[in-house]
């Protein structure tokens, strides 16, 4: 019962934090809401029996990736002017149409998953079994992920280097 309550609390926090993150005008505020949301989702991971994933979510997502965002926002130095501009762009006529579309999409998705039944978890999946799966049948996926990360590294290095070369 405790788990269920915790799940609903975490879900509510995650949803609210995400909505707030999406509607902020200040990028740093939005980022902090997003980190809250990610932490809440990490709680959900833990609750449904994926402790390894929960740890990774906190360490890599909330830690590493979001710190990248923070660095970039700091480098951009947006300030108050950006806030005003963002506020101006968040008028109802801007978001009303997309909101209706999203609503329709949501209804469709909910309709599709409404037939799913059963518990979300049949016991915790230990990091050991994840590791066995990763380096057993999914070794190709690991290779692909490493290659993807390598290309991401090369791409970001390339973009950043030219940026520095031009001295701007």
């Amino acid at each position: 019962m405790l788990e269920l309550t915790l799940f609903y609390i975490a879900s509510t926090v995650a949803l609210f934090a995400t909505v707030l993150a999406m509607t902020r005008t200040n990028a740093i505020h939005a980022l902090i809401y997003l980190i809250v949301s990610l932490l809440a989702i990490a709680v959900i991971f833990f609750l449904i029996g994926a402790p390894f994933a929960a740890a990774l979510e906190i360490v890599i997502y909330a830690g590493a990736i979001m710190v990248l965002f923070v660095f970039v926002i700091m480098m951009l130095n947006l300030g108050e002017k950006g806030d005003a501009r963002e506020r101006q762009l968040l008028q109802p006529h801007v978001w009303l149409g997309p909101a209706i579309l999203s609503l329709v999409l949501l209804v469709e998705l909910l309709y599709l998953i409404s037939t799913v039944e059963g518990p979300a978890s049949s016991g915790s999946v230990s990091p050991k079994s994840v590791g066995l799966a990763l380096f057993g049948p999914y070794v190709i996926a690991v290779e692909l992920a490493s290659m993807l990360l390598l290309s991401g590294l090369v791409g970001s290095y390339h973009l950043g280097r030219r940026y520095l070369d031009r001295g701007l």
Binding site: P98, L101, S102, V104, L105, E108, L112
Partner: peptide
């Protein structure tokens, strides 16, 4: 970008509609 995204959303809705 937003326009493209809206197009993607519409396409998504249609595909899901068919899937339903």
């Amino acid at each position: 970008m937003r326009w493209y995204m809206v197009s993607v959303a519409i396409g998504f809705i249609i595909l899901l509609g068919i899937a339903i």
